[in-house]
Structures are given as structure tokens and as C-alpha cells.
Nucleic acid binder design. Structure first.
Lengths: 244, 244
DNA sequence: ATAATAAGTTAGACTTATCTAACATTAAAA
DNA sequence: TTTTAATGTTAGATAAGTCTAACTTATTAT
């Protein structure tokens, strides 16, 4: 039986190969489930830099006690900083890993949309599964075939291989005024329902939108775009349309 | 709380929605792991129509007691017929589900090879993961883009959507005689190692192979193919090359 | 025919990922 | 400021999937 050693917290640990792979933080693999937690933490902590257990629990559709116990595990693995009753923050390593999962997700969405011709309302759920595939060549090949894209079909930035995420300073359609013409740049809700709604309205990413009127009573927007399209978007919808 | 009922073995079962989904055999989902067991059972029981626990255990790299307990589960789910100390057989439903997993695997391999330009030594491990993706549209789209292929890049048949597998009656190169010319039609070992060996020998599927000599001492084959290629294949290799 | 070997099973333990019920802390409201 | 509501944690249970050690059945060889 071969033994391996590593130093952690100033302690020398000697373990057989199986135990080594499970315990040495350099070797610890991130599970499918852990990847999902990391991804959600990164996306929810945008801006604030931290998330509460409750919010994370809702996002993942997982009960709070489960989230708490997972946070202990991720904390032991050095991927998050977690103190009881305090919000959760990613470590440097945690942020990198989360970014790489998001990279795989968005590369996949782009591939499914651009190269396979699937609808933008279909690609999210498929990418949620493919993002966990373990195969660098597979994603590198996608990247190459797509000619190293930087934005996915919903207008979200694709993180670089180094985990860097370039965020564009888009604004909500709802924040603009009558008479302005803006460019539809990012979808604010990746749900199938919302994307099917946009399909029905024939509103595609990159479309020029002109604000014809704003009803002050309910903040609904009357807009025109494309070849002769004229639609009314409620505040709820106008909040989910990011523009430039 | 809503209650649902179903009849199984002449017994009426009434359950709440969660328990219903877990217990009604019509609704029971097949897990990632279960799919792998089913796939291996089908592949190993080719010909004999049944497999032993030991063989299955070796194929899956999983210890025998684990296999036994999984067989009990699959048997309860109506996917295999399992009597203690007897070999394992798939039920009609089990065979269908196994075929559909193999279909997804081989469609994926074909897609990775034909549409993404990955090497045939790389595609197997990626397809092992993608075969478990749950998304009919995704695989239907692959099928369509590949123009409904019937054979994968290793020469294996792709099961139909109905689970039918058309097996070609290929023979091993090792069974042929000096002077014969045969067509390389199927790879007998999908391992990376073997495929890299074939790459090095520049032997591709569909190649015409002429048997120049057979050494009776060790049954090695001297063959020629392609533009001026001449190679010696040991019995071990000649057994893994299926021809027509 | 019986001993040895291979194949298969049982029992019990462990890890991951989840849950519910009960308790604790923090924040918000009265 | 105290009560209430929201948020978070502990404890204990469960299911899936795996293991090892010990036992049982079947097969093979002498």
C-alpha cells in the first residue's frame, strides 16, 4: 500500500492513495451538486459579494438546513467563507470554480443555439446538465468551433478560461424615457416561459427598440421595433429587458 | 394533500403525490447509475441473453455485493429478472431502456466525431457522460443533423428510437485466411489505448485489408492496406478487428 | 464423490445529498 | 424596548450507491 503526504494547516497528513484523494484539498474534486451551489452563489452574490442561506435555498429549490450543511462542506474544501448566521462569500478558488462552471454553461448554450439550431428557450435546461461534463477537450472544441465567443445567446458574458467575467453596464428598458432608441442586449430571465413570450413578440437580441410611450399609471411601455412591430410591455417585462 | 392510486400485482395502492412518483412503476425514473447497469447488462448478455453477477461486476468496476443489491432494485422496478444465484436477464422494458441509453451513447459519439471533429479515441469517455442527459429534443436534433445515421464511428449499430438493434454479422480478422481481402467494419475494443494504436497504424474504418501472411507459431497476421501500408498484427489485435 | 475454487449473498458500515421538526439568532415592527 | 417575524442552525431520518468481511451455493478438478 502506497502512502502519500501533504501539509495542511501546518499539520503533516499521511494517507493511503484513496484517503489521500479524498482529503488533500489540492486533489479534492468538486461534485455535480457542489458545482450547482457554487454557480448559484456567484450569480446571487453579484454586487453584494455575499448571499444569505435563505436566498440560496430558494434559488436552488433546496431546504435551508441542507444548504447550511453544504456550506460547511464547501467551507472545509476552501471554496466558501462561512460563519454561522453570516452571509456566504466565495473564496478566490470558489469564485474561479464557479466561473468555470458558468463558462461551460454559457459555451454550451451558445453551441446548442449557434451550431445545433435549438431554440433559445430550449438551451438552458440542456446546458444545466452538460455544464457538469468533465472533459476539457470537449469544451475547448466547442470554444474553437464557435470562434471563441464572449457573449451567449441571452446576452450574458462567457467567463474566460481564467475565470474572468466581463460585465457590460447594461440598463433596464424600464429605466428609459419616451423617444429613446435602445439596443436589446441581454435577457433578464432565462426561463422558458419568458423566452417563449419574447419569441411570440418576435423580439430578438440585438433588435433596436424605440420607446413610443410610457403609461404613467402602471409604467407599461409601448415600443416599436423590427419591421413594423408595435407592442406593449408591462413594467414586469420591461424590467427583464436589458438594453444598451 | 392530493392522493393518487394505481394497481400493481392486483393490489390497489393509494399514495400522496411524492410517494406516488417514487412507487408507481409507470412513473419510476431510471437513475444515471441504473442506466449504466442496464447498458452493461445488455452489452454483456449479447448472444447468451443473460449475464452473471461476477462478469457485470468486472465490467462496471463495482464489487459483487453492490451489483447484487442493485439487481434487487432493478428487479423491483421490473427492468430485470433476477433469482438469487441465477444469471441476470433483462425484461422487455429493461431491454428497451438499455437500448435507448446505447442509442444516446452512439448518437453522441457520431456527433462528436462527425460534427465536432473530435478523435475517435476521445469520443467514448465524453459520450459515457452525455448519454445520461435527459432531453429528447437534444438527441433528436443530433439525429437530424447527422441525417439519421445507423452506424457509429466504431462501426457499432445505433439502436432505433423503438430500441431495435440491427447487428451486422461481421467476422474477426483473425478468422480469415491468407490471400483474402476484407473490409474493416467494426472496432472490437473502444478503449483509448486500442484506438490510439489504430491511429498510429493509420488503419481507419472502411479500409480494405489484404492478408499477406499468417504466422502459424503465434497466429500473427501480416496485412497490407491503404496506400502502401504493411503491418504485423498479433492475434490479440487481429481478434479486435471485425471485418466483412 | 468429495475437496477446492469460483461465484454469489448477507450483514453492517460509510458518504452524499436530501428532508422534517424543533430550536436559536437576527431583524423588523409595534 | 419588547414582541413578532424572518432567517438560520441542530438533530435525527432517509434513500442511493458504494464498500469490506463473513457466509453460502455452485462448479470444477482430482
Amino acid at each position: 500500500m502506497a502512502f502519500f503526504s501533504f501539509i495542511e494547516n501546518g499539520q503533516v497528513n499521511s494517507l493511503d492513495s484513496t484517503a489521500f484523494l479524498k482529503n488533500c484539498y489540492l486533489c479534492r474534486m468538486i461534485t455535480y451538486t457542489e458545482e450547482n451551489y457554487l454557480k448559484s452563489i456567484l450569480m446571487l452574490s453579484e454586487g453584494k459579494d455575499s448571499v444569505g442561506v435563505n436566498l440560496l435555498s430558494r434559488e436552488l429549490n433546496i431546504k435551508m438546513p441542507t444548504v447550511t450543511s453544504m456550506m460547511k462542506r464547501l467551507s472545509e474544501k476552501g471554496l466558501v467563507v462561512f460563519d454561522p448566521y453570516k452571509p456566504i462569500r466565495l473564496t478566490e478558488e470558489g469564485r474561479l470554480q464557479a466561473s468555470l462552471v458558468i463558462r461551460k454553461h454559457r459555451l454550451t448554450e451558445t453551441f446548442l443555439f449557434e451550431k445545433m439550431g435549438l431554440g433559445w428557450e430550449q438551451i438552458h435546461t440542456i446546458a444545466e446538465q452538460i455544464e457538469h461534463i468533465q472533459s476539457p477537450v470537449f469544451f475547448d472544441k466547442m470554444d474553437e468551433l464557435l470562434n471563441y465567443p464572449s457573449i451567449d445567446p441571452h446576452g450574458e458574458p462567457i467567463p474566460t478560461k481564467e475565470g474572468k467575467i466581463i460585465t457590460h453596464p447594461y440598463t433596464k428598458l424600464s429605466e428609459h424615457k419616451v423617444g429613446e432608441t435602445v439596443l436589446f442586449s441581454k435577457v433578464g430571465d432565462p426561463s422558458e416561459k419568458f423566452l417563449i413570450l419574447l419569441n411570440q413578440k418576435e423580439l430578438k437580441l440585438g433588435e433596436k427598440i424605440r420607446i413610443e410611450a410610457v403609461e404613467s399609471y402602471d409604467n407599461s411601455f409601448t415600443v416599436s421595433y423590427g419591421a413594423n412591430k408595435k407592442e406593449v410591455f408591462s413594467k414586469i417585462i420591461a424590467d427583464k429587458i436589458w438594453v444598451e
